[in-house]
Nucleic acid binder design. Structure first.
Length: 142
DNA sequence: GCTGTGCATGACCGC
DNA sequence: CGGTCATGCACAGCC
C-alpha cells in the first residue's frame, strides 16, 4: 500500500479511511487531481486485483466513462491532469503506444496521444474498443 | 453513403 | 471567467 510515503500524516482523514478499508485516496492524487478523479477503490477490491502476485498496486486515478468513451468511436478521453501526472510525456500529437495490463493479467495496447485544443491539449487513448467490449463496459462504469 | 481522423465548439464547473 | 472535456463536425478516403 501507499503508506510507505513518509509525507502522509498518519492521523489525517485519508489514513483513517484507509484503515477502515472504506475509501482510499492516494496522497499524490489528492494533491494533483480534482476530487472527481480520486481513486475510490477499496482495500478489499485492491486486494482482489493484486491477488497472489507480489506487486504493489498504487491507485492513481479513476474515470467514469462517458457515452463517447464507451461508444463506437474507440477513443477514451483522459483527464488532462491524470495523463500528465501519470502517463509518459509526449511532445508529438501521435503520442505513444502504451501496453497496459488489466486485473486478470491480460495485455492491451492503446495509442496514447493528444489533440491541440485551444492553447492546451486533449489527451485520449485510441483503440479501446476491444478492451471495452471484452469487459462489457458501459457509460457510467469506472 | 459510411466510417475514421483531427480538430472545434460550447456546456459546465472550479476558482 | 478561464480551462476542461464530452461531443459535434468537416473533411477525406473508401465502398
Amino acid at each position: 500500500n501507499s503508506n510507505h510515503n513518509s509525507g502522509i500524516d498518519p492521523t489525517n482523514e485519508t489514513h483513517t479511511q484507509m484503515r477502515n478499508g472504506r475509501l482510499r485516496v492516494d496522497a499524490r492524487s489528492r494533491n494533483q487531481l480534482l476530487p472527481r478523479y480520486w481513486p475510490r477503490i477499496t482495500d478489499q477490491e485492491l486486494q482482489q486485483i493484486s491477488g497472489d502476485s507480489n506487486s504493489i498496486i498504487i491507485p492513481l486515478f479513476e474515470k467514469m466513462l462517458s457515452a463517447s468513451d464507451a461508444g463506437r468511436i474507440g477513443r477514451l478521453v483522459l483527464p488532462k491532469k491524470c495523463a500528465e501526472a501519470y502517463f509518459p510525456a509526449i511532445s508529438q500529437p501521435e503520442g505513444l503506444p502504451l501496453k497496459v495490463q488489466d486485473a486478470t493479467g491480460k495485455d492491451w495496447v492503446f495509442q496514447f496521444r493528444f489533440w491541440p485544443n485551444n492553447n492546451s491539449r486533449m489527451y485520449v487513448l485510441e483503440g479501446v474498443t476491444p478492451c471495452i467490449q471484452s469487459m462489457q463496459l458501459q457509460a457510467g462504469d469506472t
